[in-house]
């Protein structure tokens, strides 16, 4: 098993990619501490893992709160006796043109998506140093190429990619590896919410699929498996990297639906 006896924290682990990662990590032998703001989803995911015979523990946590994150790390180390992996997965979106974004919305988004990663590091780095641990940050393809009507979100994701590189430099002397993952479209509750907000959700979903060279949207587990790789010894020489896992969405000239797919019937 690839994460045998490792202790991992997954933020935003109650649903989507985080929940998929919790199961993938647990399946590989990890003790998984799941942090989520949504208590209902949190307990559902924890119960699901427990019922499958895995080790899991849920902690209700607002990742933008210094107090909550300090408690999260403290309780994790109390429960597991150590900490090896942090998957900074929690995040949210703010899809609108920049001039329509309110200052408060902007601040909130940066607190959830970026400050959260700073806070987990602030409180956990001393534990990770002891075990030559790994940190995985959730970035996005939008942090590399930008995205229409998603300027603030893209800004947070670009911040995360640069943050990842700097963290990798500063913590490399302690054997702590820091990497990030940049997915494009992934079937998650967050994506479903966004699709429902579009004028024609069915068409938007189809366009979403065809915006990837592979012609479809990723499953949460496909991204979770990249996180598993980065958390495991398989990635023992990988640090400071942004693993783009986007089904080819950023390839070619076209942003949005790939013209290549107009010639292929669905």
């Amino acid at each position: 098993m690839r994460l045998q006896a490792k202790a991992a924290v997954i933020t935003g682990g109650g649903s989507g990619i985080g929940a998929a990662a919790a199961e993938v990590f647990a399946r590989e032998g990890a003790k998984v501490v799941i942090a989520d703001l949504n208590e209902e989803k949190l307990s559902q995911t924890v119960e699901d893992l427990l019922s499958k015979g895995f080790w899991a523990y849920g902690i209700n946590c607002d990742v933008s709160s210094e107090e909550d994150v300090e408690k999260l790390i403290l309780q994790t180390v109390q429960k597991c006796g150590k900490l090896d992996v942090i998957f900074n997965n929690a995040g949210t979106i703010l899809p609108k043109p920049l001039e329509q974004v309110d200052g408060d919305e902007w601040d909130r988004l940066f607190q959830i998506n970026v400050k959260s990663m700073y806070l987990t590091t602030k409180f956990a780095i001393s534990h990770l140093k002891k075990n030559k641990g790994a940190i995985i940050n959730m970035a996005s393809m939008t942090g590399v190429v930008g995205q229409q009507y998603n300027a603030a979100y893209s800004a947070t994701k670009g911040a995360i990619i640069a943050l990842t590189k700097t963290m990798a430099i500063d913590y490399a002397p302690y054997g702590v590896r820091v990497n990030c993952i940049s997915p494009a479209g992934v079937r998650t509750p967050l994506l479903d919410t966004w699709l429902k907000q579009q004028e024609n959700p069915v068409k938007a979903s189809e366009a979403q699929d065809r915006s990837h060279m592979l012609g479809r949207t990723a499953d949460s587990e496909e991204i979770a498996r990249v996180a598993l790789f980065l958390a495991s010894e398989d990635a023992s020489f990988v640090t400071g990297e942004n693993i783009v896992c986007d089904g080819g969405a950023a390839l070619g000239y076209a942003a949005g639906p790939k013209p290549e797919w107009s010639r292929v019937p669905i």
Binding site: A152, T156, A159, T166
Partner: peptide, 25 residues
């Protein structure tokens, strides 16, 4: 990235991706 400039690098990464997203819009 830059050694011991974690917060600074983070802000500059944000500005770079913000630039690209703004350009699209």
């Amino acid at each position: 990235g830059l050694a011991k400039r974690a917060a600074y690098s983070t802000t500059k990464g944000a500005v770079l991706s913000l630039t690209k997203a703004m350009q699209v819009d």
